[in-house]
Computed example of a mutant assay.
Amino acid sequence: MKHFLSFLLMIFLLSCNNDGVIRNPYLQEVGFRFDMNLNLPLYSKLTNIGSVVFIQNAGVGLKGVYVIQSGIDQYRAFEASCPNHVPNDCSTTQLNGIEVTCGCEDYTYNLFTGSLTNAPDDGERRYDMLEYRVVRSGNIVLVSN
């Protein structure tokens, strides 16, 4: 019985695979940490659902990070570089309300979900925005990767 259980455990462990996340081949995932104090005027609008702040500080993401309050005390953060090609001169997305648009091919992404909203129907693989971790502690919102 002991050998049978060991065999089952081994089969179970060998059958496990990764979480199914498909990594974006165009965007390098860089490590960073950035704190935002919601008491400061620069970030205070993040106290309203649907409000977006663009962080363009050096070392925060590849081309900056968009942070949105997506629900009550819920925040999401996304890379500002278009996820469907290597970063270049036209790949920094431009904010338009709760969406951003890539100037290279006019792809539009929703900041509540990070989803590409106007993908062409050509059978090619397209990527959603690269999302970063966000944690709120009191009036501090921490964005990191």
Rank of each mutant, 00 (worst) to 15 (best):
G20D: 02
V134L: 02
Y127W: 08
M129S: 01
Y109E: 00
L142P: 00
Y26E: 10
G50V: 12
I68T: 04
D106V: 03
G114I: 09
V21M: 12
V60C: 04
S70N: 04
Q94E: 11
D19P: 01
Y109S: 00
N139G: 06
T47F: 03
P41A: 08
M36C: 09
S137A: 14
A58H: 07
I49Y: 05
D122R: 09
L38W: 02
D122A: 04
N145M: 06
H85A: 11
S137M: 10
D19A: 13
N139Q: 13
Y132N: 01
M1G: 15
D89R: 14
G123N: 11
D121E: 15
Y26K: 09
V134T: 15
L8A: 13
E99N: 15
Y107T: 00
S6V: 11
R76H: 13
E99F: 14
R76F: 02
L13F: 15
S44G: 03
A58E: 11
F78R: 07
L13V: 14
A80H: 01
G59F: 12
C82M: 08
L142Y: 01
G59I: 04
V86L: 12
K63Y: 01
M36H: 09
L95K: 06
N118P: 08
Y26G: 06
R136F: 12
R33I: 12
F54Y: 06
F12V: 08
F7T: 13
I72C: 03
S91T: 15
R76I: 00
K2S: 06
L13N: 07
S81A: 15
T117V: 15
M129A: 02
S91N: 11
V143S: 01
G71D: 14
F7K: 03
D106A: 11
N96K: 11
M36Q: 08
F34T: 00
V65K: 04
T92K: 15
L142I: 10
G64L: 10
S44V: 03
L9M: 14
E29G: 07
C104N: 04
L95W: 03
A119Q: 12
N110V: 06
Y75C: 12
L14I: 08
P41V: 09
L142C: 07
R136T: 13
V86C: 02
D128E: 02
A77I: 11
L116I: 13
V67F: 00
G114F: 11
D106W: 09
Q28A: 14
T101L: 08
T113G: 03
F112T: 01
N48E: 15
F78W: 15
S91F: 04
F112C: 04
F78C: 04
V86A: 14
D73F: 12
Q28F: 08
R126P: 00
H85T: 10
P25I: 02
C16G: 10
N48Y: 05
N84Y: 12
L13Y: 09
C90R: 15
I98Q: 11
